[in-house]
Nucleic acid binder design. Structure first.
Lengths: 337, 337
DNA sequence: CGGGGGTGTCGAAGCGCTTCAACAGCCTGT
DNA sequence: ACAGGCTGTTGAAGCGCTTCGACACCCCCG
């Protein structure tokens, strides 16, 4: 393993000069710099991460805490993780992958050991037990998702409330008066994951404004669960003509079951999905949808974090504006029979 | 930040004693150990990762290189990543997330800087450009996936060839004589990703043995692409009664299209999928499938890696035995018309 | 009762880097 | 011509930990 000292010797300068060439924290003459850079290349030198972290008091690593469970939005999580890794690298940071498993202990461990300079937390609950720690330690951090109280925190998220409102608005504008929301699995609501509840808030308040009736039903993914849910919905509100789906694994079953029941999409029933664009265009009916901008969320989170680490910018809540794309699954409400 | 020296002072022992309590590399009297452990707890001490890496020459970090592209098996990748992270933590390692983006440079960087003690590579191609480096540096590593030449490498993978064979065997055993394989996207074959080609090998050789005819067609996911592919298949081989699907995003479209064409599953046509169990049971017809044991692959990879880091065990190729679960999508071939 | 072999603890060296204070040389202005 | 200010470079002091060799001390055996 090549060390800085060896590079220095090879280039005929002192170790500190090499260090300054690397960090750019002091001016170095062009001649010297080039000589040093040449030695670095020739010897294939890479600074030792541990030594650097020890002496410099920064590891150049950010921790990313992903949820352990995979009961929702797996592709979204993956896309966010990849965007985080890519953006972080572009800023010279590496990414440490933590699972939710360790919970608050992971925060303590990472903070205490100086393993990472900062953290990004995903799957934030409204009352998340990791938050007091984060507030306490002063560890720079960014949440992907909004807790109930954002004081002293930086958060990045899709504006779920606006997303819900947008879906209702679209359907209401097409003349639908009875709308059903097929939500995430009950477990997601039970652990008070913010986005699910916020979406619902947005849905309800816009429904009130537009005079639309809304029925909300959580639903596990898959055919069997959805068949049951759908039956109950039509049982309770036979006049339902609009659906908002916030559960990737319910999208396809819904389309199949509607077809099977002889309800044409979009002639008889309109469907708006909240899902990544890829899912929307690969479905059996190209779906009118509000996209979940996963890569943008990951990118934003890292940008905020880097800003904090550089001493720029403080706490803020970044809400991404949802965009609805009209495709083939939504149309005017059928005339009342 | 609490340091080892402070713990030592608090416990009334020397720094080295604390270090030995932590590492267990020398015997310490019960009394002293307890005193030290108490101080550690009271002060909330966490060893500094950088210092530890510098002095101990190991970072206790393993790098995981995930593919950047998301054109296949996203949930599988995610499950593997999570299994890797979980298993690694159980062995005292943290996981550094690298994307394929940097390619071989990432290997050089991580090896050279001592950032990680070892690497796990996913999405290995038959002739992977990272392999020469890996062989050269002597960096402990495990591949998830099999390259063409495994000499000097440790690999973990599902036995894809056996998987292909198993699918054919099942269908042949049910009397199907004409089988179509709906494969991954063409791009996957073009970059010579081992698993796709190996599956095909297994399919073909067992087909030869059982006297079954096979037609293989790569296919992008989604309805439109599959509709085209399916039309071509029935055009070329109208007597096709068995399908093997190795592409998650083609599963549901296939079922929907078959239904639409009035071909009943499993009465007229049998379908065997190669996919995670969760996908198989959530489909509109519960699918006979060979599971992709993602968590087991991640776990095994870490176990091998840890064994190597501990100086136990050398290079080996671990092939997981595929298991076929019969569900509702396969049955006896219909009598010839 | 004395020497030999454990056991338990300690001090010091050193891992490879960053950074501070210091300094040598040069240029500028008066 | 020289004080003063730059610019470019250096040596040395750590960062917090691991580990080696040394050293007490105690117990057991002859």
């Amino acid at each position: 393993m090549v060390t800085l000292a060896e590079v220095a010797q090879h280039a005929g300068v002192s170790a500190s000069t090499v260090s300054y060439v690397l960090s750019g924290k002091r001016s170095i003459s062009a001649a010297t710099r080039q000589r040093v850079e040449r030695s670095i290349r020739e010897l294939g030198y890479h600074p030792n991460a541990g030594a650097r972290a020890l002496a410099g008091k920064r590891s150049n690593i950010v921790a990313l805490m992903v949820p352990l469970r995979t009961d929702m939005y797996v592709p979204v999580m993956m896309e966010i993780a990849i965007a985080v890794a890519t953006t972080a690298r572009a800023h010279g940071y590496d990414v440490l992958l933590l699972t939710g498993e360790e919970g608050p202990d992971a925060v303590r461990r990472v903070t205490g050991s100086g393993l990472a300079d900062a953290m990004i937390l995903m799957d934030v609950q409204l009352e998340d037990e990791r938050l007091p720690l984060l507030r306490g330690t002063g560890q720079p951090s960014v949440l992907i998702g909004l807790p109930a109280d954002t004081a002293g925190l930086t958060c990045v998220d899709l504006d779920w409330s606006a997303t819900g409102a947008l879906c209702v608005e679209h359907l209401a504008g097409l003349g639908h008066r009875d709308i059903a929301v097929i939500g995430e699995a009950p477990a997601v609501y039970e652990r008070h994951t913010g986005f699910a509840e916020r979406t619902l808030d947005g849905v309800r308040s816009r429904a009130r404004e537009t005079g639309v009736r809304v029925l909300h039903r959580p639903c596990e993914g898959g055919y069997d669960a959805l068949a049951l849910t759908l039956a109950r919905i039509f049982d309770e509100r036979p006049g339902t003509t609009g659906f908002v789906v916030q559960n990737e694994s319910a999208v396809e079953p819904l389309l199949a079951l509607l077809r099977q029941q002889g309800r044409a999409v979009p002639e008889d029933v309109s469907v708006v999905a909240i899902c990544p664009d890829q899912v929307a265009v690969q479905a059996s009916v190209r779906l009118t949808s509000v996209a979940i901008p996963a890569p943008e969320m990951g990118r934003q989170a890292v940008e905020r974090l880097v800003a904090k680490l550089d001493g720029r910018g403080g706490d803020e809540v970044v809400l991404l504006t949802p965009e609805l794309t009209v495709r083939a699954s939504s149309g005017p409400a059928p005339a009342a029979p």
